[in-house]
Design a protein around this nucleic acid. Structure first.
Length: 426
RNA sequence: GGAGAGAUGGCUGAGUGGUCGAAAGCACCGGUCUUGAAAACCGGCAAGGAUUAACGUCCUUCUAGGGUUCAAAUCCCUAUCUCUCCGCCA
């Protein structure tokens, strides 16, 4: 959520910045709502003040010796008129504020100044290329064929159990998948200083509002009902982790968390894309990094967090590139985002495997997560999140990049200990 | 699933209808003392919002939503959550 003060002071600048990411901010509607709100606030408060004074007078009259009935009689008419007017105004005020809140909740974050302007992913800027795609002297297979050959990836049974975009992993592939998650978790927790947490994967709507998935993107989520109340399967661990500090004033920043969770996405808008294989599933696993930091530290934190995700790719010796997303390609809550894209030989291209974002105070404002500065002032914290990495897609990348002529897959060195010494999946 | 108790500021915790936004302690901030620190002592310290050039003035908030009342942290109803006991269970 944006700071309403910024909007009051400088609507046009913000409307401009939002236009860069393809969002048209309705300045007139905002100004109208805002002036209605202001008028109603002032009126409501004046009436409340009047009523309070009248009520206190009853107390004073009683204190000075009058009976309760006498005191009431003296002010009852006045209070009657005030109350009536107040009831009306409060109802109106609430409606206006609700509308204003809804209006504000639907506005995406403002892009940072150094984010390139653009319409879609073709305008993203490649920041760095790491590693070199290796050549193969045999006909390569994609992960679907490799998985079938090794009897490790069963899409048909996934369909039988659940439906399309679900998969069953088996044997060596299942173990490799698990090894990847363990390796990532250990690297971040032990080497990068993140605190490991295990969080619920079913959350309430307040949690998803806090990180910005709601109210706008409900169609992308799996919704479940329990005791007539809505709950959601998390689309990313960013939601439960970042919300650990919702409605709190935090101390001891920075906070750094890592968690390994399944993620669930309905992806209603993207049927037809990536239908083959494990690239886009309704259920997948991800190791997520979250940092909660002071405002002045978030620029540095984004670089650091991104480098932590990169370290996984480096350790796995997978070729990748780091991309700075343009204004039009960023997520709703992000002010600046780096994507890490891994090389997939079968597609002869780089595919997203991690997305690292600085949301600045956008989520903190929604969550009311603040810190005390010098023991006095409160200020919104900044929150950052990034995949470190998407486990399913990393599995694909390892399978394809480490495939051998006979269809077997070499286990990357750093994973061998997690595979109890196994060096090849055949 | 059954029975009971509870939810108050960063934390602990007092407060059962009338200047209560709320005692006290801890934590925190400032100061005195000290070579420095600790201790001790003095002072400050909830959040959000409206308005103002500023000082200030005003409003809201004691889990949430309703209700009673001239007046609600305090009484009533509902929901959520927590704790204790019983049952069930990985």
């Amino acid at each position: 959520m944006l700071d309403i003060k910024l909007l009051r002071n400088d609507v046009d600048t913000i409307a401009n910045a939002l236009q860069k990411r393809g969002f048209t901010f309705d300045v007139d509607q905002f100004n109208q709502l805002e002036s209605m709100r202001k008028a109603s606030d002032i009126k409501t408060q004046q009436l409340q003040s009047d009523r309070k004074k009248a009520s206190k007078k009853v107390g004073e009259l009683i204190q000075s010796g009058k009976t309760v009935d006498e005191a009431k009689a003296e002010v009852s008419q006045l209070i009657g008129t005030i109350s009536q007017a107040l009831d009306q105004e409060v109802t109106k005020n609430k409606a206006i504020n609700d509308e204003l809140l809804q209006f504000l909740s639907g506005i995406p974050n403002i892009p940072d100044a150094d984010v390139p302007e653009g319409k879609d992913e073709s305008d993203n800027k490649v920041v760095s290329l790491v590693g070199e795609p290796k050549g193969f002297d045999f006909e390569i297979k994609d992960h679907v064929d490799l998985g079938a050959t090794l009897d490790g990836m069963d899409f048909d049974t996934g369909v039988k159990l659940s439906g399309s975009r679900f998969v069953v992993l088996k044997e060596g592939i299942a173990r490799l998948h698990r090894a990847l998650a363990q390796f990532m978790l250990d690297t971040h927790a032990v080497d990068h200083g993140y605190s490991e947490v295990n969080v619920p994967v079913i959350v309430n709507s307040d949690t998803l509002k806090g990180t910005g998935q709601l109210p706008k993107f409900e169609e992308d989520l799996f919704k479940i009902e329990h005791d007539n109340r809505p709950f959601y399967l998390i689309p990313t661990a960013e939601a439960p982790i970042t919300n650990l500090y919702r409605d709190e004033i935090v101390t001891d920043l920075p906070k750094k968390f890592v968690a390994h969770t399944p993620c669930f996405r309905s992806e209603a808008g993207s049927y037809g894309r990536d239908v083959r294989g494990m690239i886009r599933q309704h259920q997948f696993e991800k190791v997520e990094l979250v940092q909660i930091v002071s405002a002045s530290e978030s620029d540095k934190a984004l670089e650091e967090l991104t480098s932590h995700a990169e370290n996984i790719l480096k350790a796995l010796e997978l070729p990748y590139r780091k991309v700075l997303l343009c204004t039009g390609d960023m997520g709703f809550s992000a002010a600046k985002t780096y994507d890490l894209e891994v090389w997939l030989p079968s597609q002869n291209t780089y595919r997203e495997i991690s997305s690292c974002s600085n949301t600045r105070d956008f989520q903190a404002r929604r969550m009311q997560t603040r810190e005390k500065i010098d023991g006095k002032q409160t200020a919104f914290v900044h929150t950052l999140n990034g995949s470190g990495l998407a486990v399913g897609r990393t599995l694909i990348a390892v399978m394809e990049n480490y495939q051998q002529a006979d269809g077997s897959i070499a286990v990357p060195d750093c994973l061998v200990p997690y595979m109890r010494g196994q060096k090849v999946i055949a």
